[in-house]
Computed example of a mutant assay.
Amino acid sequence: MADIAQSSPGAIAINLATLSGFRVAGMTGAVISGIAAVIPSFVILVFISMFYVAFAANPLISEVLKGMQAGVAALIVDFVIDMCSMMVKERSLLLTLMIPTSFLANFIFEINVAIIFVMCCFICIVRVWLNERRQKKWGNY
């Protein structure tokens, strides 16, 4: 399971928690384990963000944050490249078109990224559901 978690996109700890939860309690266990793996980091980030103004006012921390922006930008570019290559390998026209459509929706039409993200998640969930339904239908014959 650790090998699968390392090979799939995303944080290894979250992937491993989700896979373990799925093995123990199915889809419910996967959802609960995934959420439980995210909660500690989320709480810490919420706490830090409440005091962000005080941190950013400190000149030393301000310079450190500026330096971290370059690292974050590099991580985002690496993530986008990995995500795009995985979507192209899937050889799905829908997933391949999702990349430029999302970019155009944000850049040209200025649609909020969160809305684009939710729509893409919804489309992918429907796609998986339809594929499973199709496999069950054809599996009966």
Rank of each mutant, 00 (worst) to 15 (best):
M98H: 07
K89W: 06
T18K: 02
T18W: 01
F122G: 15
C121R: 09
I125M: 13
P100V: 13
Y141I: 14
F103C: 09
I32R: 04
P59M: 03
N58A: 05
G21I: 02
I14D: 03
T18P: 02
P59A: 00
L104G: 02
M83K: 08
A13L: 11
L130I: 12
L94I: 08
A56H: 03
S85T: 15
A70V: 08
G67Y: 04
T28M: 06
A30F: 02
V88M: 12
I116F: 05
E63G: 06
N15V: 06
W129F: 09
M83E: 05
T18H: 02
L104A: 14
G71Q: 06
I61M: 07
I111T: 04
S20I: 05
P100D: 13
F79G: 08
I116Q: 07
I12C: 09
V31M: 06
A57K: 10
I44F: 05
N106W: 06
G71D: 00
Y52G: 03
G67T: 04
I116P: 00
G34R: 01
I12Y: 03
M86L: 13
S41N: 06
E110K: 15
A54K: 09
V77I: 12
V24R: 10
L94R: 07
S7T: 06
F22Y: 04
E63T: 06
F109K: 14
M87W: 11
V128M: 09
A17M: 00
A105Y: 05
V64E: 01
I111G: 05
N131Y: 06
F117A: 12
I115S: 12
F103W: 07
G139S: 08
A2M: 12
T18S: 03
S7P: 04
F109V: 13
S41R: 05
C84F: 15
L95H: 11
F107K: 13
S8N: 11
T18V: 09
E132W: 11
I76G: 02
N140G: 10
K66T: 01
M98D: 09
P59V: 05
V38G: 03
E110F: 14
I44S: 01
S62D: 04
L130S: 07
F42A: 04
A114D: 06
E132N: 14
I99T: 10
V38P: 02
V24L: 11
F42C: 03
I76H: 04
F42D: 00
I123H: 02
L19E: 07
